[in-house]
Amino acid sequence: MASSARRRVLLRDVAEHAGVSSATASLVLGGRDVRVSEDTRQRILRAARELDYRPNLMARSLRTQVSSTIGLVADTIITGHYGGDIIRGALTASLEHGHRLLICESEGDPKLEPVLVDDLVARQVDGILFTTASHDVVELPAALADQRVVLVNCEAGPGVPSVVPDEVEGGRAAARLLTDAGHREGIVLVGETLTRKLPAQRRLEGLLAGLAAAGTGFADRIDCAWWPEAGFDALTEALASGLRPRALVCLNDRIALGAYQALAAAGLSVPGDVSVVSFDDSELASWLRPTLSTIALPEFDMGRTAVDLLLGDDPPAGVVLVPMPVRERASVAPPSSR
Rank of each mutant, 00 (worst) to 15 (best):
L102C: 03
H81T: 15
L101K: 03
P55M: 05
A74H: 06
V73K: 04
A90K: 12
T76V: 10
I78A: 13
A90F: 12
I87W: 07
E105S: 13
K111Y: 12
L95E: 13
A90R: 08
A93V: 10
C104K: 10
V66S: 11
G80R: 00
I103H: 04
S68H: 12
A74S: 07
E105D: 11
M58S: 13
S94K: 02
E107L: 14
N56M: 11
I70V: 14
M58N: 14
D75A: 02
R60S: 06
S106V: 03
P55S: 08
S94W: 12
A59E: 08
I77Q: 05
I103D: 07
G84N: 12
L72C: 13
L72S: 04
L95S: 13
G89S: 08
G71K: 01
I103A: 07
I70P: 15
T69V: 15
G83Q: 00
D75W: 01
I103W: 04
V66A: 13
T92E: 15
G89W: 02
G83M: 03
I103F: 07
H99W: 05
R60W: 02
A74G: 05
L101P: 01
I87Q: 02
N56Y: 07
L62K: 03
G108N: 05
M58D: 15
H97E: 10
T64W: 00
S61P: 09
S67M: 04
A74K: 01
S67F: 04
L91E: 14
V66T: 12
I77G: 04
